[in-house]
Write a protein that binds this DNA or RNA. Structure first.
Lengths: 184, 184
DNA sequence: CCCGCGAGTGTACGGTCGTACGCTTCCTGG
DNA sequence: CCAGGAAGCGTACGACCGTACACTCGCGGG
């Protein structure tokens, strides 16, 4: 694991290449050889740096969730009141769903693995916990939970829909779910 | 395609076996050989009944969406008023997320394919259109769209969460998003 | 200066894959 | 009763896979 006497960013390049490949061809398309070619490292490095292909996938997705969680932090940390928080959530949804298809595809691949393998669920749990923590700064826990689920659904539907809904509808949904019965 | 002179449910058995296999091992785990063994048909039947592995996957997922859409119909067709519709949605979410992991896993696999390949998006479009049509019997189009996304997010989060939320929270979220600002 | 050792690599092996294709088998029309 | 052809199957081929492991190479200590 520690860099020996020669070693630039081999490990990092391998992980980046892995994510690129998954984004393009999906988990079924990954192989040591394709990744090695793309990262421009010898095939032998694969088993040297990673215990096996599963190990590699886990590391790659850990890296990916770090990236996504950072994105959540960027959007959800700054808001100072409820309305700013609502707007930030709407922005986040639209960034996630209309930015590069890459993040969407990788997210789905991760969820697919998480649905079947507990080891990957750790990653999604950490992610959900982090986003809920942000939301709970502005909303009560139950509301944060509902909102978190809504973000997920809106992002996915927007990304897959033939005619994606506009930001106004996103904001309306967010506002509705964060408006508690009591008072404004 | 037409059944020749001998042919019980070969095609159907192959499709069922394919879905079982995907549910257990994921799309990366499917192969003509494994499916053939599981469906108890000779290997040669694979290429005879289906043009290739992609063709087979598409057929299998078409079959699966038929099943899921039927489930949506079962829950969303009967309700006669808004409140019954809300309760039906809550039931649907909980059925989808706590019933067999199978449907969840298959849904994720389909979304993953749909995120990358337009051919599979046809299936998700049809599904979304159908569920929205049901919801629009009770709610205006914009609300139906938001609710549809909420269903998606609640189902996924409930299925992946370490401690799934209870039905009351689901119902609260549904109620909030279907309560338009105007009047009750 | 030389030796040893560990980081990093090339290669080869055993296995699985998708699919083409020639063969069997059995219905049908005469 | 026979010929023909279509439905369906077994097998084999070429490609690709993951991984083990013997090897190289270059630095650091003596």
């Amino acid at each position: 694991m520690a860099t020996g006497h020669t070693d630039p960013g081999r490990r990092a390049r391998i992980i980046a290449a892995t994510l690129d490949l998954i984004a393009e061809e999906g988990v079924p398309g990954v192989s040591h050889r394709k990744i090695a070619a793309r990262a421009d490292v010898p095939l032998g490095s694969m088993t040297y740096h990673f215990g096996g292909i599963d190990d590699l996938l886990r590391e790659a997705f850990r890296h990916f969730t770090d990236h996504i969680v950072a994105l959540f932090d960027t959007y959800l940390a700054p808001p100072a009141d409820r309305d700013q928080a609502r707007a930030a959530v709407a922005d986040l949804v639209h960034t996630l769903s209309e930015g590069s298809r890459r993040d969407l595809v990788l997210t789905q691949e991760l969820y697919t693995l998480a649905a079947r393998r507990p080891a990957y669920r750790e990653l999604t749990h950490a992610w959900m916990a982090r986003s809920r923590a942000h939301l709970e700064k502005h909303f009560d826990p139950a509301t944060a939970r509902q909102l978190d689920a809504l973000i997920e659904g809106l992002t996915l539907h927007r990304a897959l829909a033939r005619e994606p809904h506009d930001r106004a509808l996103t904001l309306e949904a967010v506002t509705r779910i964060t408006t508690t019965g009591g008072r404004p």
